[in-house]
Nucleic acid binder design. Structure first.
Length: 388
RNA sequence: GUGGAUAUAGUUCAGUUGGUUAGAACACCAGUUUGUGGCACUGGGGGUCGCCGGUUCGAAUCCGGUUAUCCACCCCA
């Protein structure tokens, strides 16, 4: 038997939840005046090398990368932002710094070891906002994410942090690295490697011993420049006013290289170790990094498969069951089926059955209304009807 | 990439110290004397016991390998 590849899943049992999620989320995004964008699944490999960053695991070892028949070095997209930014620049919106608010959804591919909440092909729903420098755009985006999650009654914790900007991050990084170098001996192997590769990641280490050593580490939020600090305060104040619960997590590091200033993550405690259900933040330098004019941007992405177990939709009766009890009624029923399907969900049972058999089936299918033609109805040209 | 666990029907699982034709529940399909569903009852279909090899008169059961799944690390959505 040919089976789906490792880490790839057919969406069958949850397909109703899946489509419901996309429909509802899109609706909310459109209420925020975000427009739909679809970008290719396949992109040039260097797009991700330059945006996500060569130091990241995603680019380093998780990409589905190959040479196509034209000799191009390509890969299946491991995340959504890079492609959207590429599109923004390619269609020259950067020249005039045209504000653009887009949402997207679709499959992403990462060659990882599968586990709960982690697939090799998975789906994200995300938004990106270009051209708005203000922290109020960050707030808008966080509000949008929380509204989507709230609409499915999902329990979450929102963590926020500020990663600083070009002005304050380098000085902070220097003091962090020198702090880490002093402690180097006491840190785990991974952290020692991270000091040179990605020092911020050390803060995020789950090793207990490391966390003890890091208690006195310099915190980014105490080392922000005036501007970043002001924005981070506005962010917190406005979230409070909007009644969005959050906690500041100075160890929150978004894994992709392109983030700066606001970083946030929605976390669930109900779905296992892969608990991040939505992650995002500001990436003001990314458009430039991909050879566009400097345009600030902010966005987030949600992992749909991780959210589905948290989404509950109550099965409700809907649709019409149409059945016949005599072969002669078939034409009449078919005509009715033709008419009803213009504006109704209709199940047409084409087998001749007894009344109780029809009812049993209609019940099983969760239909709301039953319409049957028997001998009597055929004579009178009517339908026997019942609400379930 | 590392570690641990698991693999028997569509699903959840039984299956004794290796021994007839591998079972149950749920699900599915059909029916229960003639036009009112959910309940109940009766019957039915469905498994090369993950795959390959070995031990044995005989393997779902023991051994080796392999693949996949699950959980965690790592990483991230």
């Amino acid at each position: 038997m040919i089976k789906a590849l490792r880490g790839m899943k057919d969406i069958i049992e949850d397909s109703d939840k899946f489509t419901y999620f996309i429909k509802k989320s899109s609706e909310i995004a459109e209420n925020f005046c975000f427009e739909y964008i679809e970008t290719p699944l396949l992109e040039e490999t260097r797009l991700f090398k330059r945006s996500v960053g060569e130091s990241s695991d995603i680019v380093n070892k998780e990409m589905y990368q190959f040479t196509d028949k034209g000799g191009n070095d390509v890969c299946l997209r491991p995340e959504g932002t890079a492609g959207v930014v590429r599109a923004y620049i390619e269609h020259k919106f950067d020249k005039l710094k045209t504000p653009k608010q887009w949402y997207y959804f679709g499959p992403m591919f990462r060659y990882e070891r599968p586990q709960k909440g982690r697939l090799r092909e998975f789906h994200q729903f995300g938004v990106e906002s270009f051209g708005e420098e203000s922290v109020y755009e960050d707030i808008k985006v966080i509000l949008l994410a929380s509204k989507i999650l709230d609409s499915f009654n999902i329990n979450y914790t929102l963590k926020i942090n500020s990663l600083g900007c070009d002005e304050c991050r380098p000085t902070y990084m220097n003091s962090l690295v020198s702090f880490l170098d002093e402690k180097k001996e006491n840190l785990c192997e991974d952290c020692q490697r991270r000091i040179t590769q990605n020092p911020l990641r050390v803060l995020d280490c789950k090793n207990e011993n490391c966390q003890n050593e890091l208690k006195t580490a310099p915190k980014i939020t105490y080392n922000l420049c005036e501007n970043c600090n002001k924005d981070f305060e506005i962010l917190q104040n406005e979230l409070k006013k909007l009644n969005i619960q959050f906690e500041v997590d100075t160890n929150l590091v978004r894994g992709l290289d392109y983030y700066n200033k606001t970083a946030f993550e929605f976390v669930s405690t109900e779905i296992g170790a892969q608990s991040a259900i939505c992650g995002g933040g500001r990436y003001d330098k990314l458009v430039e990094m991909l050879n566009g004019k400097p345009v600030p941007a902010v966005g987030f992405a949600m992992g749909i498969e991780r959210l589905l177990p948290l989404v509950n939709i109550e099965p409700k009766r809907e649709g019409i069951y149409l059945g016949i009890m005599t072969e002669d009624a078939r034409d009449m029923a078919l005509n009715k089926f033709n008419e009803l399907t213009n504006s109704n969900k209709v199940y047409f049972e084409n087998r001749v059955r007894k009344l109780n058999q029809h009812l049993k089936k209609a019940d099983k299918l969760n239909c709301k209304k039953v319409m049957i033609i028997g001998e009597d109805e055929l004579k009178n040209g009517t339908f026997w009807e019942k609400e379930l």
